[in-house]
Amino acid sequence: MDASIPDLLRLLVVPVFGWAALRDVKTRRVPNRTWYPLAALAVVLLAVEGWQAWTGTAYETRAFALRTAISLGFVAPLVVAFWWFRAFGGADAKAFLVVAALFPTFPTYEAFGWVLPHQRTAVGVFSLTILTNTVLLGALYPLAVLGRNAVAGRFSSVMVVGKPVSWRAAAEEHGRLLETPEGVTRNGVDLDAVRMYLRWRGLTLAELRERPDRFRDPATLPAEPNPPGDGSVGVEDLRADGGELEAPAETVAEEDAPADDPWGAAAFLDDIDHGAYGTTPEGLRDGLDVLVSAEEVWVSPGIPFVVPLFVGTVVALTYGDMLFGAMAVFGLA
């Protein structure tokens, strides 16, 4: 393969994004340290190629400066805006910020007589190509969810974004609950927040369902709650001292029990030292009321967006820009 050293180094994103995608599917968590080496690499490559452009022709200088400005001044803020409005998760936003810094221009690879990427764009900002590829691939996810529900005969106003699962499976699902006691909703409680609450109390969902009236009483809140963690699935539940989480033997004193706080939802959110994914006491109470009474609930599985990012990056590095390719088919590009 013939390519410049910076472009060859950029291929390191493929195994890193692949690992991050696998991690995102399993736990919906990607450690922050994943992005540090790629961010450092991006800074070095920007400096190297910036110097090469500066010492090159006037056209090369202007082209590199313009594309870098678009990548860092448009794509990066756009990603932050998506994160702000919760279209992206934190890991997704960090990954795209790395992409914006690492791929301001199109790389070039020559192999077996092929020049890749094949489909280029007029603007020439490669991070924008990766972003559009990712969004287009991500848009297939709700269509797949809709088709699967339709084939299975599961019809609901939320069948485009959700799926029905048993209450037992809900305890291990990612995403949001799409139900309240009043009916379906697009903004139910985050299931990670439910797991945080259960760990905080040292209870399982099955135990909550066995005695819902008792545990709805805030007087049964633990005097010394467990660390809530971050609500991720597939992690070992441990206390700060290394022991396993357990239901505390002591509950709060009756005079210290919060008044008018079913499930102790407000007390839980007040006690933890960080947020619970935007969860409100009312939202948590509604979610718990549904989970302790329903046998089957609708949940939004949530899109592990690092997966389409990984695929979109691989497609971008080989085929190129999917949007421009589609436009070219119809004579629009």
Rank of each mutant, 00 (worst) to 15 (best):
L12E: 12
V14Q: 05
V14H: 10
P15M: 14
F17D: 12
F17M: 15
A20F: 11
A20W: 09
A20L: 04
A21E: 09
L22P: 09
K26P: 11
K26N: 05
T27W: 12
R28K: 12
V30F: 03
R33P: 03
R33H: 10
W35H: 07
W35M: 06
Y36C: 04
Y36L: 11
P37Q: 07
P37K: 05
A42Y: 01
V44S: 08
V48D: 00
G56H: 10
Y59K: 11
E60Q: 15
T61P: 05
A63V: 14
A63R: 15
A65F: 09
R67I: 05
T68L: 05
T68P: 00
A69F: 03
A69M: 09
L72H: 00
G73W: 04
G73T: 07
A76Y: 01
A76P: 00
W83K: 10
F85M: 14
F85S: 09
R86P: 02
R86V: 10
A87R: 13
G89Y: 10
A91I: 08
A93S: 13
F96V: 09
V98P: 01
V99W: 05
A101N: 04
A101K: 02
F103A: 03
F103Q: 01
P104T: 04
T105H: 00
T105S: 13
F106R: 07
P107V: 03
Y109L: 02
Y109M: 03
E110G: 06
E110A: 01
A111Y: 11
F112M: 06
W114H: 01
V115L: 10
L116E: 08
L116A: 02
P117C: 13
H118E: 12
Q119I: 09
Q119A: 14
R120A: 03
V123S: 07
V123W: 06
G124I: 00
V125R: 06
V125F: 01
F126L: 04
S127K: 00
T129M: 14
T129Y: 06
L131C: 09
T132Y: 06
T132A: 14
N133W: 12
T134H: 01
L136T: 09
L137R: 11
A139N: 02
